[in-house]
Nucleic acid binder design. Structure first.
Length: 849
DNA sequence: GCAAGGTC
């Protein structure tokens, strides 16, 4: 019996196999560089099978998160030709989530011929969805069950990665939950359609109208946009804030030899100057305040809860000034190096039987922690019982001592924070005595509160939470005691606006409204930074940019729901109905998509509301742009927008064409691209890099299946015809200038074109010619053209004695007739480009004969 | 080029 078991990540596969094999598993590499396979012998308890279980050979391995991700069919990926509204109905496809890892093929390989599949994916909705991604690959290659009713695919449901929980899950296998998985499918589809439609629409619109947006994409997303909304909301609060004057009564008293004490008035502050003057007048002749009451209470402060991801991110941001994204990167590094436990968890309760002592003993080697660890080791460790186990991973803790010199400075900061947090959770409460004294003065109450520290407990480590013994006094209080008034005065103050949102406040808001997950919160925050919607300023406060503000105000004007923090949770609520089996997948999805389709249409119809805000903030393209080159479609001049991202805009066709960035753009001799009639421009980049670009070809590569690795040697752009030069065959006989290139993407019909964009005769079709092998120089027959090609005919393999044909494309009948480029042009209305192309072509040939 | 969610 052979059993394949699959976890969600390599680290979990390792831990699980150690537990299930009791340390006897052996590890081997697999076809996937990230995923090892752990093998061991054991027994499989089939659900409902009874008995001792089947003796089996187990293979435990993992995927790396999602196997597949959702995207549109490639034909919808052209922003110029796809109406964003169509994206609500466009066909989608699954593609490999991490192509480089080749997970599907790896799963099929390992799953081939196994009798059983056991799924150990994380126990949440995403995990359930990945179960089915794994099943899709493995089920078709499994050994067919002996009887049709034999169940061969099982799900292990575990609540923690502890020996007890894992063994229990293993002995009580269940089945994957289709409804939960479908709710994730629905979420993916919704996010894709909504996000991409809005993003493409607003990007295209505002980039064609405004300069200085300093942004390549103006994105919209159901998580990132409400996240931005929080930052702008705080900004608005600050903007609308009107400072107000208020006044306080300041009173200090003393008794015999004690230091004066400052008292707090119970009315705190008064916003009316006349009123405060009256109070002052009323009290100013009093010389004595008497003690009304004295209370002394023992108080304590509990240590922090064990650390989970979101709290770690907050601490890194607010105390270490490290961004959530960087914090996660560092934590992952510390984790892979074995210094800390798995850093993505929502659990705040230590598992039963957690070995605190061995970790604390190991940390005791480190002089940075010795002060605390030695105290724990001598005093004994009381494992805290607080917190919540949500069944994912244990809280974040150090796993072993990291010598200071073994890690980088920032790694150390994060490690130290995690370690101090861990040690603090093992320390006792901070205990102190609080004394509250109420004084009476002319009928008004004033109070004083003092703290006396009894035991600092965990605040010895978390010093910023320490209870000082301030204000201190040696005075003894008793009821009826008379104190002398040392000072009674009025002080004037101003109310102050709140500060900009700190990153750690933002994280809390996102957590509260269930926007993003512990793993994706850092990504959303980084997103709104890189999209230039917010800037991080001192104290890691998020200050929205003009662009961020205008976007949020625009949504609020047109459809406030688009930016509301409740939007995400509303969607999740709908999706949860699918997960619970209460609602039908198709119904919920089409209903929700309908809502967003209408919202999109409404937004598009009313976008002028947002446009007005852009107009007031950004300068229009017209003011910075100039006419530069002609459009191949309407033959009118297009405007060149010289600000980032520099681009060309055709006002008449209402299309924008991207250009290479970080260099200058000029018109190139008024020559048109032979493929589409657009006037060629010349790009001069850094370090003197210069090349010609067709504005249309740049975004719409003429050869759709040019393989990815084939990059141009002189320019960085993928779709540059020069990228084809690996297949070049000598120089062009027509213009005597460029190199002839073969396009292998056109299948059995080879296309040949000239890479000199100045040459209008470019396309030749070689029917029935395949697999060009080699370039030879001159045709021995006609001598007219230099180019000879070796090729295989009619798909006959070259190896194994097949005919090898050498031909000249001038005189060889197989290679004739030559078909000129413009005839196979890509636009219906090609106008003048055609005639000119032919003329030049003929001239070119004539010269050579 | 676009979303959000896994994880490397």
């Amino acid at each position: 019996m052979r059993v394949l078991m699959v976890a969600e990540k390599p680290s979990l596969a390792k831990s699980l196999s150690e537990i299930l094999s009791r340390g006897s598993s052996s590890r081997r590499k697999s076809s996937c560089s990230a995923c090892d396979v752990h093998e061991f012998q054991g027994k499989l308890a089939v659900p409902g099978g009874g008995g001792p279980g089947l003796a089996a050979m187990f293979k435990m391995t993992s995927v790396c998160g999602h196997v597949m991700s959702l995207d549109f069919q490639p034909k919808y990926n052209n922003w110029e030709t796809t109406d964003p509204l169509l994206l609500y109905d466009a066909e989608t496809m699954k593609k490999e989530a991490i192509p480089s890892l080749r997970i599907p093929s790896f799963l099929r390989q390992e799953g081939k011929g196994v009798d059983y599949l056991v799924l150990w994916l994380d126990c949440d909705k995403e995990g359930e969805n990945i179960c089915y991604e794994v099943i899709n690959e493995v089920e078709p290659v499994m050994k067919p069950p002996k009887t049709p009713r034999t169940q061969t695919i099982f799900r292990a449901k575990f609540s923690a990665v502890t020996e007890a929980a894992i063994l229990h899950a293993f002995n009580n296998l269940g089945f994957p939950n289709w409804n939960e998985s479908r709710s994730v499918d629905a979420r993916q589809e919704l996010d894709l359609r909504v996000g991409c439609s809005f993003t493409r629409f607003q990007t295209k619109l505002f980039q064609s109208l405004y300069s200085g947006l300093n942004n390549s994409v103006i994105s919209y997303g159901p998580c990132q946009t409400p996240t931005l909304g929080f930052c702008v909301e705080r900004h608005d609060e600050i903007q609308h804030f009107k400072p107000e004057k208020y006044w306080k009564l300041d009173c200090s008293v003393s008794h015999s030899s004690s230091n004066p004490l400052s008292l707090q008035w119970d009315k705190e502050r008064i916003f009316d100057h006349e009123v405060i003057k009256l109070f002052h007048l009323m009290l100013t002749h009093h010389k004595i305040a008497s003690v009304e009451s004295v209370s002394e209470k023992s108080r304590s402060k509990a240590p922090p809860l064990p650390l989970h991801t979101v709290e770690m991110l907050r601490a890194c941001s607010s105390r270490l000034h490290i961004s959530p994204k960087q914090a996660m990167d560092i934590a992952e590094r510390l984790y892979t190096e074995g210094y800390i436990s798995y850093p993505r968890t929502e659990t705040t309760k230590y598992p039963a039987g957690f070995d605190f002592k061995s970790i604390v003993s190991d940390l005791n080697k480190n002089e940075h922690f010795k002060e605390f660890t030695s105290q724990l080791l001598t005093g004994g460790i009381r494992p805290p019982s607080v917190g919540k186990d949500v069944g994912d991973h244990p809280p974040i803790t150090p796993l072993r001592n990291a010598p200071r010199e073994a890690v980088s400075d920032t790694q150390w900061k994060v490690y130290e924070m995690i370690t101090c947090h861990f040690l603090a959770t093992l320390f006792p409460d901070c205990k102190y005595k609080q004394t509250d004294v109420v004084f009476s003065l002319g009928g008004e109450s004033f109070s004083w509160a003092g703290h006396t520290l009894i035991d600092p407990g965990f605040t010895l480590i978390n010093t910023w939470q320490a209870i000082g013994s301030v204000p201190q006094t040696t005075a003894q209080f008793c009821k009826g005691q008379k104190w002398d008034i040392v000072q009674l005065g009025v002080s004037e103050h101003m109310t102050t606006p709140p500060g900009y949102l700190t990153e750690s406040e933002l994280i809390s808001l996102m957590e509260k409204h269930a926007i993003g997950t512990d793993a994706s919160i850092p990504v959303h925050i980084e997103n709104i930074c890189t999209r230039n919607y917010v800037l991080i300023q001192s104290g890691r406060r998020l200050v929205p940019t003009q662009l961020g503000i205008v976007l949020v105000h625009g949504y609020q004007k047109i459809d406030p729901e688009l930016v509301k923090p409740t939007m995400r949770s509303e969607i999740e609520k709908q999706l949860n109905e699918i997960a619970l089996g209460k609602a039908d997948y198709d119904q919920v999805l089409s209903h929700t998509l309908d809502i967003f389709r209408r919202k999109f249409s409404y937004f598009r119809d009313n976008v002028s509301g947002m446009n007005e805000l852009f107009e007031a903030t950004f300068s229009s393209v017209a003011s910075t742009a100039k006419l530069l080159s002609r459009c191949g479609k309407c033959l009118r001049y297009m405007t060149y927008i010289p600000v980032k991202p520099q681009r060309l805009h055709c006002k008449h066709c209402d299309e924008t064409y991207s250009l290479p960035q970080n260099g200058s753009i000029k018109l190139y001799k008024e020559i048109k691209c032979p493929l589409d009639g657009f006037e060629i421009v010349i790009f001069s980049g850094p370090r003197g890099k210069t090349y010609t670009v067709c504005p249309y070809c740049y975004s719409n590569p003429p050869f759709s299946t040019v393989s990815k690795g084939m990059s141009c040697s002189t320019c960085p752009h993928q779709s540059c015809p020069q990228a084809m030069n690996q297949l070049s065959i000598d120089h062009c006989p027509s213009c005597d200038n460029g190199t002839l290139l073969l396009d292998p993407s056109s299948g059995p019909k080879w296309k040949m074109y000239c890479n000199s964009l100045a040459c209008p005769v470019v396309l030749h079709c070689f029917e029935g010619v395949h697999n060009v092998e080699k370039t030879i120089n001159e045709c021995p027959e006609c001598g007219a053209y230099h180019v000879l090609v070796d090729f295989k005919k009619d798909n006959t393999p070259l190896k194994g004695g097949a005919t090898k044909h050498i031909g000249c494309y001038n005189c060889d009948p197989i290679l004739s007739p030559l078909v000129r480029g413009p005839e196979s042009g890509r636009h219906a209305h090609r106008g003048r480009g055609r005639g000119r192309g032919r003329g030049r072509g003929r001239r070119g040939r004539g010269r050579r004969h």
